[in-house]
């Protein structure tokens, strides 16, 4: 299972990890050995087997629609690395993602 440095670079970008060239190199080596290791999964016969997303046979419980605030908004804001005017401050956002 070969994984190219460019592929690793792409994944690092996707994960927003700023890896140096050296780190990309060693990461590629690591990922390659892991992928070799997990390749044994293809030996298992999974024909017709359902994937397990949850080990419990539970269904989602629902929360009644009762509004409640813990009153710790100020405490939450205190953890912000940068804040001002009651907002969280971030480097300028350009374009971007909107739902």
């Amino acid at each position: 299972m070969a994984i190219s440095k460019d592929e690793v670079r792409k994944v690092a970008r996707l994960a927003r990890l700023g890896l140096t060239e050296d780190e990309l190199e060693s990461m590629a080596g690591h990922m390659e050995s892991i992928l070799e290791f997990v390749a044994k999964l293809s030996e298992a016969d999974t024909e017709g087997v359902e994937p397990t997303a949850h080990v419990l046979d539970l269904t989602a419980e629902l929360r009644p629609d009762e509004p409640h605030l813990d009153g710790n908004a100020t405490e939450i804001m205190k953890s912000a690395p940068d804040a001002g005017f009651g907002f969280f401050k971030v480097p300028k956002v350009i374009g971007g993602e909107e739902i």
């Binding site: 009651g86 907002f87 969280f88 401050k89 480097p91 300028k92 956002v93």
Partner: peptide
């Protein structure tokens, strides 16, 4: 998004 020239944005 703030006006031109401001280098930060605010999040609510």
């Amino acid at each position: 998004h703030m006006e031109e020239g401001v280098n930060f944005s605010l999040v609510d």
